[in-house]
């Protein structure tokens, strides 16, 4: 098999770096964080199953941390709501599980948050995302994070190609050093329906597939850049 080893190498190095930093940091001051997205006045809700007409409770959600500050996976311009829908999506290593510390791509690490539920309050409703458990995120303080939720995956499930997910982020979504930190103020007002419009793809495409894509893209570019001969050569 001639599959490229570069992504796996990046992933392995990143995990090794995490482990080493964990050991080195053992004697330093640490702090746990809890990230809050819904309270009695502000709510992140309407997390919806795309196959259902209304918001759904019980969907697994978590956070993904962009530990290198280079964006989340290969999905360009994740916005709220995702734009455009059905974007090519977020890369994940096929076979990874929905569990704390999993690297969904070479440098983007996942932490379990909970399940969407109905919540109280004047902004409350079905499909609300409340708050994470207490998380030890010392290694990621200052890194951007996004909220991710899954259409059908539960905690510890194995990710497979085609599994649907939704993801949103905000320029103020930065991992804090410690404490119970509110982010719900970014979700005031009526929330839009947020469907799991993305799908997990294979993080490491087969070279043959990649080559086909390269040929296709190159052909398209060459076709657009080639001068219109009839105009050049017209008398």
């Amino acid at each position: 098999m001639t599959r490229s080893v570069f992504p796996e190498l990046c992933l392995t190095m990143r995990k090794l770096q995490t482990a080493l930093l964990g050991l080195l940091g053992a004697g330093l001051a640490h702090g746990a964080v809890t990230l809050e997205f819904t309270d009695a006045l502000y709510a992140l809700n309407n997390i919806s199953d795309g196959l259902s007409p209304g918001p759904v409770n019980g969907l697994t959600w978590g956070i993904v941390i962009d530990s290198e500050g280079d964006g989340f996976g290969t999905s360009p311009g994740i916005t709220n709501p995702p734009d455009p829908p059905n974007d090519p999506g977020y890369l994940a290593e096929v076979g990874l599980t929905v569990s704390d510390g999993e690297f969904f791509s070479a440098d983007d690490v996942f932490f379990y948050g909970g399940e969407t539920i109905f919540f109280i309050g004047n902004e409350a409703g079905n499909g609300a995302i409340l708050r994470t458990p207490s998380l030890d995120l010392d290694l990621y303080t200052g890194d951007p994070f996004a909220i991710i939720w899954f259409q059908s995956l539960a905690s510890d499930d194995t990710i497979t190609i085609g599994d649907a997910y939704g993801i949103i982020t905000h320029d103020q979504f930065i991992v804090p050093p410690l404490g119970d930190v509110p982010f719900q103020q970014h979700f005031s007002g009526t929330d839009p329906i947020r469907n799991p419009d993305f799908q997990f793809l294979d993080a490491v495409p087969e070279p043959s597939v990649g080559l086909l894509w390269l040929v296709a893209i190159s052909s398209a570019l060459l076709r657009r850049r080639r001068p219109p001969q009839d105009r050049i050569w017209s008398p």
Partner: peptide, 26 residues
């Protein structure tokens, strides 16, 4: 174990009742 912990449970008050901040239960 650990220092500088964040909370293990949060409770939110709304309209006369306290709700668990993670489960939404009254």
């Amino acid at each position: 174990a650990g220092i500088n912990k964040s909370s293990s449970v949060s409770l939110i008050y709304f309209s006369g009742s306290w709700y668990n901040g993670s489960t939404g239960q009254n």
